Simulated scan of single mutants.
Amino acid sequence: MNNAIYLQALTEDQKGNWEQAHDLIQDLSSPEAAWIHAYLHRKRVISPTPGTGITGQVSHSPR
Rank of each mutant, 00 (worst) to 15 (best):
S30A: 05
G53Q: 03
A34D: 14
T49I: 14
V58A: 01
D27A: 14
I25F: 13
A21S: 15
P31G: 03
Q57H: 13
L24V: 13
Y39R: 03
A34F: 15
R42L: 13
Y39H: 08
A34G: 03
P48K: 01
L24G: 07
K43Y: 14
T55S: 09
E19I: 15
A38L: 09
K43C: 04
S30N: 06
S30K: 01
R44P: 00
I54M: 03
Q26K: 14
G51C: 03
V45I: 09
D27R: 09
R44A: 14
H37R: 07
A34M: 07
Y39I: 03
G56H: 06
G53L: 06
T52K: 01
S29D: 13
I25E: 08
G51V: 13
W18M: 15
Y39M: 05
L40S: 02
L24F: 15
Q20D: 14
I54P: 00
L24T: 10
G51K: 01
S29R: 05
H22A: 12
S29Y: 14
R42W: 15
I36Q: 00
V45P: 00
Q20F: 13
E32D: 10
K43R: 13
T55W: 08
D27T: 15
G53A: 04
I25K: 01
T55C: 02
L28I: 11
A34S: 10
T49S: 07
T49K: 05
H41D: 11
L28T: 02
Q20V: 11
G51P: 03
R42M: 12
G53F: 14
P48G: 05
H41W: 10
T55E: 09
A33K: 00
T55M: 07
V58K: 01
S47E: 11
L28S: 01
W18S: 14
P48Q: 02
T55I: 13
E19Q: 12
P48C: 07
V58R: 00
L28Q: 09
I46K: 07
Q20H: 12
P31I: 12
